[in-house]
């Protein structure tokens, strides 16, 4: 008999992995790994602010992550390279979050769990929240999928065909912010970007179309979640990092193997 809390953790992990699949593919296709980092790192400040205001942490995370994602997406670069700007945003957000967690009154935060995740303590309510939020993200992405692909391929082409780049940006950034809030519990804010890009990068060499890449990414993500939890259970390692280790191993397998990219 498997412990119910393990089943809960696996269910939550699988839900997050499935939502991560289309988002992670978009992040990889658009070369926006740093953008994911910035959004993820903003989550810590969101948790700290929410706790100090006695609000649900997830609310703080959604608001602060969305604010971060939107300001990065719409900020003008002011003469810096894009990666410099994103690095500034990303690391500033993390540092401010850590300082705020120490300074703000009434904040008692388990820093290690926030940074590295704590999936084995997921509650039924949290699973329901992940299921509802995840379904909302998947529904919006499915509805806007053609536009998202067009904007990924060529913003100019999309604009010429009458698509809205603003709508595309809003959908992408807000979905990512909500995803950060839902996935924090699984891998923690330090590894959220890893959860997005590693399964997608592992699936890429095997995929011949965007939709098949999303499906393969979901598969790699699921294997990573289950494999990582098994390792965590057997070897008493932290679950979040163990999940990413399995993802990294799968990435090595598909990319460095004889059929992988040269």
């Amino acid at each position: 008999m498997i412990d119910p809390f393990l089943i809960k953790a696996a269910l939550a992990g699988l839900l997050v992995a499935w939502v991560a699949a289309p988002l992670g593919c978009l992040v990889v296709w658009r070369r926006m790994a740093y953008f994911g980092d910035a959004t993820g790192h903003a989550a810590l400040l969101g948790v700290a602010l929410a706790l100090s205001l006695s609000l649900p942490p997830i609310l703080g995370v959604v608001v602060v992550a969305a604010a971060m994602a939107l300001s990065v997406a719409f900020a003008t670069r002011g003469g810096f390279a894009a990666d410099t700007m994103l690095g500034v945003f990303s690391h500033a957000a993390l540092a401010i979050g850590l300082v705020a967690a120490a300074l703000l009154p009434g904040v008692r935060l388990n820093l290690i769990n926030t940074l590295l995740g704590d999936i084995l303590t997921v509650s039924t309510n949290e699973i329901i929240m992940i299921a509802i939020g995840g379904s909302a993200i998947l529904a919006v992405l499915a509805f806007a999928w053609r536009g998202l692909l067009n904007a990924t391929l060529s913003p100019e082409l999309m604009a010429a065909e009458g698509g809205s780049l603003l709508r595309d940006k809003l959908i992408f950034t807000l979905s990512l912010a909500l995803f950060v809030a839902l996935s924090m519990k699984l891998v923690g804010i330090l590894l959220i970007t890893a959860l997005l890009i590693l399964p997608a990068a592992a699936a890429a060499p095997l995929a011949r179309s965007p939709e098949r890449m999303v499906a393969l990414t979901a598969l790699v993500g699921s294997l990573s979640v289950l494999g990582g939890m098994w390792i965590s259970w057997e070897a008493d390692t932290p679950a979040g990092p163990s999940i990413i280790v399995v993802s990294a191993a799968l990435f090595a397998l598909t990319n460095l193997g004889p059929s992988g990219r040269a």
Partner: peptide, 9 residues
């Protein structure tokens, strides 16, 4: 491009 995209798609 990093996105797998057949011409027909």
């Amino acid at each position: 491009q990093l996105i797998p995209m057949p011409v027909d798609r």
